[in-house]
Design a protein around this nucleic acid. Structure first.
Lengths: 209, 209
DNA sequence: CTTTTATATGAACATCTGTTCAGTATGAAG
DNA sequence: CTTCATACTGAACAGATGTTCATATAAAAG
């Protein structure tokens, strides 16, 4: 897919657009018309170049059989490559509140993106508030919290402080655990003996609004 | 979709199968050949009947433009809840460079988190650079780019500018498309005629480092 | 300078393809 | 029996479509 000239990539893009939009591949002349060519041959040469470079396939002599070459192919999973994670209600990334957790459905996540072997206590949480914008965690994001692993300094953790859940950055200062909100408008929290790490954020998932 | 004779429903089924499998609709003669007709007219009559009954659409006189009219029957049972998205090499979120795209594996994503029906051109990209930190997109994040949808102002898009790929915020100013990098250290790009939206970010996935 | 490459024009050909016309056969409905 | 709808054959036309040939221009490479 390398060495495409500007025109060639534009032509390839146009073909793929049409294919995706209407499910109908354009003809050589439709390509020529779209780019303002006065000869179908101009479009044909580009198509031929794309075929030579392996970007396009077509049945010779047949109408509308251009197809952008698809890079395959998911390696068939021997193990279950996807796990179902339950989603609990929103937790505030700002000030901690009572964590009355109700299940709100579940999401399927690739274990590869999860990074860890999921346990029964892996769960997803909807983020509310903007206390973690400094770590690129926005309001509405879904974070996956894994319980069984040890937090490393710099990890984002869901911590239970005085019986309340909050999402912060985990740090160590002189060997003492230390939670920091990544937003100057929120106060830092330095828990003492009551600190209880509920889990470490292993994955973040954001949907288009 | 009532009053279809057995032959007609078979023909409609064949067309839909071909359309789904290869993305290429059969011609009248290919339909005739498949059913063993010795005349293309036999197939044409069935196609015409299906058109009259509203089951098919086509551009008159154009080759391979048959399209089965989609009636929304979301058979939740048979629909796959997870799709495999190919991951291409890193694209810079900072300055645009040549997009030499090599596949780097694939990831399974829940169609629910994807939010849109994935097409063949849905792909994942590893983000490099920090030009989008203002939108909570960090270096190393995986963004899923969907091609077939129209970008809304405020969307993050992968745009092809002068043949080069870059990740920016899509805006409109006086009706003109406008790309903005969410980092003051990077310049704004105001493309003119060369603007080519390659896709819209529909999902973001971040793994624990 | 010459050669090569990318790009485009213009004409032409062979075939593919949708479409139409005319005719045959079967079975159900009236 | 007649009528009508469904199903198919066979031939043919007109336009759509992939493809090729010859030619031209501009830019890059050597």
């Amino acid at each position: 897919m390398k060495g495409l000239s500007k025109r060639q990539s534009h032509v390839l893009n146009f073909i793929q657009e049409k294919q995706d939009a209407a499910g109908i591949t354009p003809t050589i002349r439709e390509i020529a018309e779209h780019f303002g060519f006065n000869s179908p041959n101009a479009a044909w040469l580009h198509v031929q170049a794309l075929r030579d470079k392996g970007c396009l396939t077509s049945l010779p002599g047949r109408a509308r059989t251009l197809q952008a070459t698809r890079l395959e192919a998911p390696k068939t999973a021997s193990r279950p490559r996807v796990v179902s994670i339950p989603i609990y209600g929103a937790i505030p990334a700002g000030f901690p509140t009572e964590g009355a957790q109700e299940e709100e459905g579940c999401v399927l996540i690739d274990v590869e993106t999860l990074g860890v072997k999921p346990t029964a206590r892996t769960f997803g949480l909807k983020v509310r508030g903007d206390s973690m914008v400094g770590r690129g965690i926005l309001d509405g994001d879904l974070v996956v919290i894994e319980h069984g692993i040890q937090p490393r300094p710099g990890d984002v953790v869901a911590a239970l402080i005085d019986g309340e859940v909050t999402l912060k950055t985990y740090l160590l200062q002189r060997g003492k655990p230390f939670l920091r909100a990544e937003n100057p408008r929120y106060p830092n929290l330095i828990p003492k003996e009551e600190l209880q790490i509920q889990g470490v954020m292993v994955t973040l998932i954001r949907k288009r609004k």
